[in-house]
């Protein structure tokens, strides 16, 4: 069976004026199956976001190949990469990144609109799924941080992407809200058979991961699961 994502010797190199060459990702090779949930650990600056950007088609590797469903992302043009992100990838960010100019409903409708699917019922169902029924017409700033992140999750998942990339999704939330958000991510990914890669530096967030990797010095190292899933919470 073809893995959903295959990374082969992926390397990303930046050249900066002051620091010289930086290699946040070096010779990374990994297969990730459909429906699998991956936890990505690492210190600040370890390259977690770069890794997510590479598999999300936002950035391109300096060398190596990334296959999505057997298709080499390196061979895609810029508009094709945009199409890939539009249809296959859902991003969840630490700072939510909702559009303050759009209502909650419009934020969630946006990915569907981009795909030409004008299905408001689907978006409303998604909002209900994240527990925000009745907040459709509000603006993001009228919501709490946890609620905003739930809207962001609804926006990422409403188009039923194959791949969800979550970058520190609970980094700005308190513990209780974090757990709520993680449970929603867990449930929604499970319902839709979506693959999840979640970058975090919080071990407590990893209870939903099937596999855990650590990015260290640019290398991706698989971590053995210590303890059972039920440790948190």
């Amino acid at each position: 069976m073809i893995p959903l994502l295959r990374l082969v010797n992926v390397k990303k190199r930046y050249v900066t004026g002051s620091a010289g060459e930086i290699l946040p990702v070096r010779d990374v090779s990994v297969d990730i199956k459909r429906g699998e949930r991956i936890g990505l650990l690492g210190k600040s600056g370890s390259g977690k976001t770069t890794f997510l950007n590479l598999v999300g088609g936002v950035d391109t590797p300096s060398s190596g190949m990334i296959y999505f469903n057997g298709r080499d992302l390196g061979e895609l043009s810029s508009p094709e990469l945009a199409e890939y992100r539009r249809s296959e990838v859902g991003f969840v960010f630490q700072s939510f990144n909702l559009f303050p100019t759009l209502t909650v409903g419009e934020n969630i409708m946006l990915p569907l609109d981009l795909l030409g699917i004008h299905d408001e019922n689907r978006a409303r169902a998604m909002l209900e799924a994240v527990g925000l029924d009745g907040q459709w017409d509000k603006f993001p700033e009228q919501l709490s941080g946890g609620e905003q992140q739930r809207v962001a999750i609804a926006r990422a998942l409403v188009k039923s992407p194959s791949l969800i990339l979550a970058d520190e999704p609970t980094g700005n939330l308190d513990l209780e809200t974090s757990n709520q958000v993680l449970r929603i991510i867990d449930e929604v990914c499970r319902d839709r058979d979506a693959t999840l890669i979640m970058a975090t530096h919080s071990l407590e967030s990893l209870w939903l991961a099937d596999r855990i990797f650590r990015l260290q010095g640019g290398s991706l190292i698989e971590q053995p699961r210590s303890g059972s899933r039920e440790i948190v919470p």
Partner: peptide, 16 residues
């Protein structure tokens, strides 16, 4: 510019 970048993550091309 940040919102434009988010649009890029959502699959909006530079042309769009």
């Amino acid at each position: 510019s940040r919102e434009m970048t988010v649009l890029g993550y959502l699959g909006v091309t530079r042309r769009e």
